[in-house]
Amino acid sequence: MSCPKTQYLLQEYFSEDLSAVARDELDRHLSDCAHCNAELESVLFVQRDIQQWQEQSVPHWDRGRELFRREHRAERPLSQLWLSWQWFPTAASLAMLCVLLFNVSVVSNESGFSVSFGGSSGANIDLRAQLAQFEQAQRGEMRQLVARVESRQDSNNVQLLQAVMEQAQQSTADSFDQMYAYFEQQRLLDLQDMRAGYEQLVDSDYETIRSLQQLVNYVGYQGDIR
C-alpha cells in the first residue's frame, strides 16, 4: 500500500534545516506508516552501501612542483638572485675580460709582487732582457744538440752503408756460384744428349749399311738365277 506523502517526506528527511517540530512530525509519520518506513530503510541502506567506498591512492604525479618552482623562480626578487650565487660566473667572465683589455700583468719576485696595467713598465724591460738571454742560451743548446745528432746520424749512415754493401757483395758471389753450377750442369746434360744422339746416328747408319748389304746380296742372287 502506497502513501501519498512518501516523496515529499523522504526528500525532507535528508534536509539539514528541518525544524524540530517538522522533524517530530516526520518521525511520527514514519513510525505509523509502514510504506514510508520501508522506503526510508531501503534508501538509507543504499546510502550506507555507497558510503563503503574505499579511498583509492593517487597515482604518482609531480603535484605541480615544477610549475610552482618555475613560476616562483621567475618572480624572485633581485636580492634573492644576488644571494643565490648565480652572478658568480658572469662576474668571473667580466674580471677576465678586464684583465685582457687593460693588459694587466702581475709580477712576483723576492720583494713581493706588483700589478701593472699596460705594457711599458720597468719590470717588463727586465723581463724582456731575461727572455733574450734565455733565447740565446736555448739557441746555443739547440745548435749543440743538432751537431751531436748530425754526427751520430752520419756514423749510423756509414755503418748502414757498409752493412748494405757487404750484404750485396755476399749475395753477388752467391749468385755467381749458383750460375756457374747451373751452367756446368747444363753442359753435362748437353754432352750426354750429344753422346746419345751420336750413338743413335751410328746405330741407324749401321742399320742402313746392313740393309744395303742385304740388297746387294739379293741383287747378286737374282743375277745368278738368270
Partner: peptide, 12 residues
Amino acid sequence: KTRFYSALKKLK
C-alpha cells in the same frame, strides 16, 4: 532535494 531522492531511488 528532488534530484537527490530520485538518485537514491535509482540506486536502490
